[in-house]
Design a protein around this nucleic acid. Structure first.
Lengths: 240, 240
DNA sequence: CCCGTTGACACTGCATGCAATGCGTGGAAC
DNA sequence: GTTCCACGCATTGCATGCAGTGTCAACGGG
């Protein structure tokens, strides 16, 4: 890592998203600095960034405390992601894709097709699908060519559970999650087809509908939050 | 001001938006700290925040340099604002307004009506209109009740010239700008009416169309950038 | 005359000291 | 027993020192 402050920032963000700190907990500089092997200065720098990201908030009496999130906040963030990704899909449909862009997106879909064609979805297969999903969404945003849009999505995704892959159907062991993955993946196909046919409104509409499955998954994760607390530790950051 | 770092942050952001630093200019800590009457530490803190806001960027060799913006970036940011504000209008139409909300928005419009009814638009009248415009847009976002959406708009608006009021028709002395203001204000009326009638798609469409005037104004400001360089000094931050 | 190398200066990144403030605890008084 | 006040400790906010590094300039060699 090239500097202390970037290392601290990454490690601290990681700790937070791993649910290491309880909501409302005071984040004292000294113990964190010692824990991460640095002095207080880079820790303070990291806090300033994390505050901008909305993961911590500064206490009126000084210092920083761990934020908590409401279900509504996360749901709202997913809705916003739908709006922004829908816009990216529409813009890309309107400006049109070059051949290499189209090829790359088709590659993603083919990889997803392959993963879902397997009779049983292994953990590795699921991980591959998550990677593919992330790449597909990122590519559409990149190809849309609107930096402000990309930035807005990036900022929005910093909230836990708001990013594209964070809310894929997770209970894939049951056949239930598998079915939802199939639908999700079908939507990917429709989005790409609409973009290719320059059907901007359709691409946007399906991309917005696409996140409804994410909202549903968020709800189901809440209902069985104790089942998920070990694989998604950040769930404890959510205030009921 | 309650702390050095918040004071420094505000003052430094102000200096930047006043065009005090040339694009690409190295922003050395010591002279800035001396100029603002503080030590280097709070200045560094402020830089970390400003980097997140996208106003400065960190140089690979250390330190920070003034960012520059392209016309396309600012245009993109205005488009994103249109998408986000359009979404806010749609959401508000969908969930419905309470009576006090409706009243407050109507107050804004009445104030705008009054300003535009005057035979001549004075500087003060124009300033009033700008305030009203800001309030109107902020209220719709607030009433929409989606925090993630509000946050996204806030982040997006930090880019110079992207915010709602920054791109109102400015050449009001000529009759030309006046006419555009009339159209802008008519759109405000349509947006509110659509929200009241729960016509979400219409509200969204008009709110998105609304920012096309902002884009047009940005273009015209560029074409006569020397005319505007004293009232909008940040225009020098734009790379041609 | 131009290019490369070397040295010095300035600036950043980080650590730490110091003062101020907030918070918690313990004691005393009602 | 409860409440209020005071004292002390911990922690923050800020300043500054120090080391490392990048950059610019000047000088020498080709």
């Amino acid at each position: 890592m090239r500097s202390q402050q970037s290392r601290i920032l990454v490690q601290l963000r990681d700790l937070i998203l791993k649910g290491e700190f309880a909501p409302g907990e005071r984040l004292a500089e000294i113990p964190i600095a010692e824990r991460l092997g640095a002095s207080r200065t880079p820790v303070r720098l990291a806090f300033a960034t994390l505050e901008q990201e909305g993961l911590v908030e500064s206490s009126p009496s000084g210092g920083y405390v761990m934020r908590s999130f409401t279900r509504k906040e996360l749901d709202d963030a997913i809705v916003v992601r739908g709006v922004l990704e829908g816009t990216a899909a529409r813009l890309l449909a309107e400006i049109g894709m070059t051949r290499p862009m189209s090829d790359e997106l088709h590659d993603c879909l083919a990889q997803g097709d392959k993963a879902l064609a397997e009779p049983e979805l292994t953990i590795d297969g699921y991980a591959d699908y998550v990677d593919m999903n992330d790449r597909f969404h990122k590519l559409i945003i990149e190809f849309a060519g609107n930096d402000a849009l990309a930035r807005a999505i990036e900022v929005n995704d910093r909230l836990p559970f708001a990013s594209a892959s964070a809310t894929l159907p997770m209970h894939t062991s049951t056949g239930d999650g598998r079915r939802w993955l199939q639908i999700t993946h079908y939507q990917h196909h429709v989005i790409l087809q609409a973009i290719e046919k320059r059907e901007g409104a359709r691409a946007q509409a399906v991309a917005m509908e696409h996140i409804e499955i994410a909202r549903m998954n968020l709800r189901s994760a809440f209902e069985r939050s104790q089942d998920y607390s070990d694989i998604m530790p950040a769930i404890r950051l959510i205030r009921r």
